[in-house]
Design a protein around this nucleic acid. Structure first.
Length: 396
DNA sequence: TCTGGGGTCCTAGGACCC
DNA sequence: TCTGGGGTCCTAGGACCC
């Protein structure tokens, strides 16, 4: 089985069976059509609504079990177990949580327990790959730490990507233990801050703080178009849709933005067409999460950079200068006289959309004008957990 | 025919200030 | 002949993550 990216373009996740057929993560699906057909590979479009809903349910189980939980991503969380060792066997404790998630959600879980996040992630990978751990791998003493470091794949260490791996290899470092055993001055001489932090973590000294990451500093919505588009009207429809989506995300996390950026991209894989890309940023006089203001600013930016005669493949809206909604600086010359009214309007729209489904109420300019530019999604699984019309039906 | 989306951090270099 | 020292802010690009 393979799961595709937006627009049904690239393979972003696949089962071991699919890997065994020679399919690779990141590959565009059209390049492996033959394999897919020949071996009846099951294909799914991506469905972030479904995954987010499932993620939330799993996270809720964690939160009910552990006092302090950080949601790192849609499928990873960090639990702080400081002090728990006085009352529990940490292996048993976490194994019960894994069993609970399997029982209620039928999702396999792997857990690493260690003094730092980098080591904990290593542990979870061991737990994932070796059934003998029964879902939980502890790296809780010096002997286990050194053994784990010596066995682990250097390129799989959190924070070591393709380029850093190549550099480490060229310096004669081939496994995480060799890296951890290097001196502080060696690490600082050849690398910069992020690598230094990884080195500290590998040596059991916690220094990566993911809590800071919980407040997003920017918010983006962007899409590749199902078909390339050329007209300003279709670009307006798409950019307005993206801008409005950004504003929704902003309100959902109770923050406001100070700048709106719009960017346009032609199709970089088409050498036969003129290439063009550009971006424009508009400041917002008063930081806001108001869909109308943000969409207007985005459309102004779009007008600045639109160039006729180009086949556009992708557009996006980025909101920056994002801060908490409390404590907004007002402006004497603010053209919007009653911000409270506008805020109430947005709150009302949000609650209508929450109750009756997304896009029950939207800006007129968000009208998609047909679906030519909408990303393709031909193998989407149902929104089983969030939409009554798509709830799973079972034949008895 | 056809190549994803949403983030963060760090650094170097330019522009500008006194 | 020959062009300081000490700062800040911003941005683009690189690297990394899921």
């Amino acid at each position: 089985m393979c799961v595709l990216s937006s627009n049904d373009d690239c393979i972003v996740a696949l089962t071991p069976e699919a890997k065994a057929l020679g399919i690779h993560r990141g590959e565009p699906i059209f390049k492996v059509r033959d394999i897919v057909k020949q071996h009846n590979v099951v294909i799914f479009s991506t469905n972030m609504y479904l995954y987010a809903a499932m993620s939330k349910r799993v996270t809720n189980i964690l939160r009910n079990s552990v006092n302090y939980v950080e949601n790192y991503s849609i499928d990873e969380s960090f639990c702080c177990l400081d002090g728990y060792e006085k009352y529990y066997d940490l292996g048993d404790f976490m194994r019960k949580i894994a069993e609970k998630i399997r029982l209620y959600k039928d999702i396999p879980v792997s857990i690493g327990v260690a003094p730092t996040k980098t080591l904990a992630k290593m542990g979870s990978k061991f737990a994932k790959n070796y059934k003998g751990y029964s879902s939980v791998c502890l790296i809780d003493n010096e002997e286990k730490r050194r053994k784990a470091l010596s066995l682990f794949d250097l390129g799989d260490v959190w924070g070591i990507g393709r380029n850093t791996l190549a550099k480490l290899n060229s310096l004669g470092v081939d496994n995480p233990l060799q890296l951890a055993d290097k001196s502080e001055s060696w690490v600082k001489h050849y690398f910069t801050a992020p690598m230094y932090h990884t080195w500290l973590e590998l040596n059991g000294k916690p220094c990566i703080d993911t809590a800071e990451m919980l407040q997003n500093k920017s918010v983006t919505t962007s899409r590749s178009f199902g078909e390339m588009i050329t007209t300003i009207d279709l670009l307006k429809a798409s950019v307005a849709t993206f801008a409005s989506s950004c504003a929704n995300k902003l309100r959902a996390q109770h923050s406001v933005a100070g700048k709106v950026t719009v960017y346009l991209l032609s199709n970089r894989f088409r050498n036969d067409l003129d290439q063009y890309s550009n971006a424009a940023t508009k400041p917002l006089l008063v930081k806001t999460s108001d869909s109308i203001e943000i969409t207007q600013a985005a459309l102004d930016a779009l007008t600045d950079i639109f160039k006729p005669g180009i086949y556009y493949k992708k557009a996006g809206v980025i909101l920056t200068d994002v801060t908490d909604a409390s404590g907004i600086d007002l402006d004497l010359f603010d053209p919007i006289k009653n911000r409270q009214e506008r805020y109430n309007l947005m709150t009302t729209i949000d609650s209508l959309n929450h109750r009756f489904g997304i896009k029950t109420v939207q800006l007129a300019v968000e009208d998609t004008q047909g679906d030519s530019w909408l990303p393709k999604s031909e193998h989407r699984s149902g929104n089983y957990l969030t939409d009554m019309d798509e709830i799973l039906t079972i034949k008895i």
